[in-house]
């Protein structure tokens, strides 16, 4: 990082660079600029994760004229791609430098692409094709699955952490705060809270797992959104986070059409 990122800053390719800094042995997301670039460290593999795409989005909104660089994992790159498609970030104003995840982290995440397109740091490891957790649930009988979910949902304290940390939750008005869909003074919220959020993640969730990581109630949210991703792929033939610039969720056109005929 000392050389590559420093160079980008020195050459003026970027106005700021989002990477991390170790403070008391912990990894913190950090914004480097020309002023503090001497604090850049050598890259180390780690499993520390933080909502860096969200921090980038916040800064880019505040300073639309600035170009930012960002150190991304596979999931974070997908988030940035998805934000391009939803017109939340400007492709011209972002420079990504990639780091690959370790095999341990990839296994923990059941990650289907634990590395970004260009890997500058680390070695890309094999993706995990299937989620054992999703399969475990699919095998359950419907009623057991409902019990399983309600047993988890009932711990929800409605802190909105899952939404606030999510890199692709960028709306300024949120359905989860609509008092008809999700009653304001009810705790734990009923299934509608989680179903509404799951619906909104259709075509957006890039499976970074931060929601599950921050949830103070330890609700296995990522499993739910992994299934959402699977359904979106089946029904819409789309995998959020791809780099092809189009999403059937933002684009009205022939992509929307199904072959005509009875269902």
């Amino acid at each position: 990082m000392k050389t590559k990122i420093k160079k980008l800053l020195e050459e003026g390719r970027v106005d700021g660079f989002f990477a991390y800094k170790t403070i008391h042995g912990f990894f913190f997301p950090y914004l480097f600029t020309k002023e503090n670039m001497d604090e850049l460290e050598d890259w180390k593999p780690s499993s520390a994760r933080y909502p860096i795409a969200k921090l980038l989005l916040a800064q880019a909104r505040k300073n639309p004229e600035k170009t930012y660089g960002v150190l991304v994992r596979g999931c974070e790159e997908r988030a940035v791609h998805e934000l391009y498609k939803w017109n939340q970030l400007d492709r011209e104003k972002v420079v990504m430098v990639g780091q690959a995840c370790t095999a341990d982290l990839a296994a923990d995440c059941e990650c289907w692409k634990p590395f970004p397109t260009d890997v500058a740091y680390g070695e890309a490891v094999e993706p995990v094709a299937k989620s054992a957790r999703v399969e475990m649930l699919e095998k359950m009988a419907g009623e057991d699955r409902l019990k399983w979910w309600l047993g988890h949902f009932n711990r929800c304290v409605k802190c909105f952490g899952c939404r606030d940390v999510c890199p692709v939750c960028f709306c300024t008005e949120c359905s989860l705060e609509h008092n008809k869909l999700v009653e304001t003074d009810k705790l734990p919220p009923d299934s509608s809270f989680h179903l509404v959020r799951a619906i909104h993640m259709g075509g957006r969730c890039i499976d970074c797992g931060l929601c599950e990581e921050v949830c103070p109630a330890n609700i296995p949210l990522r499993v739910l959104y992994k299934e959402v991703g699977k359904l979106v792929e089946e029904v819409y033939g789309y995998k959020p986070g791809s780099d092809d610039g189009k999403s059937p969720f933002t684009f009205l056109g022939d992509e929307l059409m199904l072959p005509p005929g009875p269902r």
């Binding site: 179903l195 799951a198 359904l231 005509p260």
Partner: peptide, 30 residues
């Protein structure tokens, strides 16, 4: 019916949404 939607593509969206919702409800145990 498909092809008859008065907004041309409305029901194409409906099919996909319904399929998605069926899957989601099922996974949540409904």
């Amino acid at each position: 019916h498909i092809g008859d939607c008065h907004y041309i593509r409305g029901n194409y969206m409906t099919i996909k949404r319904a399929k998605f919702m069926e899957g989601l409800l099922n996974f949540a145990g409904y």
